[in-house]
Design a protein around this nucleic acid. Structure first.
Ligand SMILES: [Mn+2]
Ligand SMILES: [Mn+2]
Ligand SMILES: [Zn+2]
Ligand SMILES: [Zn+2]
Lengths: 160, 160
DNA sequence: GAGATAATTTGCAATTCGTGCGAACAAACA
DNA sequence: TGTTTGTTCGCACGAATTGCAAATTATCTC
């Protein structure tokens, strides 16, 4: 995603207004590698700007995505996550703490779907699920059964 | 997924009852390669057994998944899909008609996430998005293709 | 600066997908 | 046939996200 300053210019160039709410969201997304949900961003935003609405957060995220400044990712948790990293990359998700990390996959674009004829590939997504280093370490320290439940137990905020 | 007959035995072995609703769902899933949603299965089931409830369809699907007879997949459409194919495989999704096809990916298990240290990979998922052969053909024939929409009729995630 | 104007923000209703719950029901078995 | 559970099913509820319209405000014009 572009810097808040560049985004400001982009917005004006698109005939969109530069509101304090939008500027705040730009700053919260800048260099944000946590793949936050709208709700998570709303929580943070509310801290700095009490009164901002969740609706506005959603709207701004959606327009950023529409403008290609942001990527939306859905990992099957029932919530949409937002990723300011629009470069070609993939993700690793920890089954224990829920942390989502950007990863690179060598020769990913060379992957081919076998078993379908004439399928024209536009995009390839690779998702790794497993246990992150930090969780692996703490499980060795104090072995407690840490199993990620299917649905409602979706992880709030990775605390590493 | 096992055959309806085998599932019947499995169910009994698990102390579960073999109801007509369950048997119907077993048969609807057998050799089903459409990756149906609960609602889609409910529609079909209702046809053969008027009065069956959506609740029961959900319940049966969930228990089959719990027993490992079925795989749940979430491709970010806002709905859970069910896949009787529990073998190691991946998916290709047509951006035009929404069809989801099973595909094989060579050396998929050899993929490694670069950029994270000590991440212990349990599972790798590869998703191809693009245009299926059939849609590709019809788009060449007539400029307006068939658009099957589920929830987000809006344009799929554009990245890069 | 003051005013006009169209874009934004917001709160709230509505929608969608799925689950919790409990009463009515029906397999399984003696 | 009766008893014992496990099941079914309707309905309320919950979470995530969007539709809507009134109130607000960024931005432009003079
Ligand atoms: Mn990312
Ligand atoms: Mn499949
Ligand atoms: Zn972790
Ligand atoms: Zn297609």
């Amino acid at each position: 995603m572009n810097s808040p300053a560049v985004l400001a210019a982009t917005y004006r160039a698109h005939g969109r207004k530069l509101t304090p709410q939008r500027q705040l969201i730009f700053s919260l997304l800048h260099d944000n590698t946590t793949h936050p949900t709208a709700d998570a961003l709303y929580a943070t935003a509310s801290h700095k700007m009490p009164g901002i609405s969740l609706r506005t957060v959603y709207q701004t995220l959606n327009e950023l995505a529409e403008m290609g400044e942001l990527q939306t990712i859905d990992l099957g948790e029932g919530v949409t996550r937002f990723d300011p990293n629009v470069d070609d990359h993939h993700h690793a998700i920890c089954n224990v703490c829920g942390a989502i990390t950007d990863v690179h996959v060598e020769r990913a674009s060379a992957l081919r779907p076998k078993g379908v004829d004439g399928f024209n590939v536009d995009d390839i997504g690779v998702v790794f699920r497993g246990v992150c280093a930090s969780c692996e370490a703490s499980s060795k320290r104090s072995p407690s059964p840490q199993v990620k439940k299917s649905k409602s137990a979706s992880t709030p905020t990775p605390k590493h």
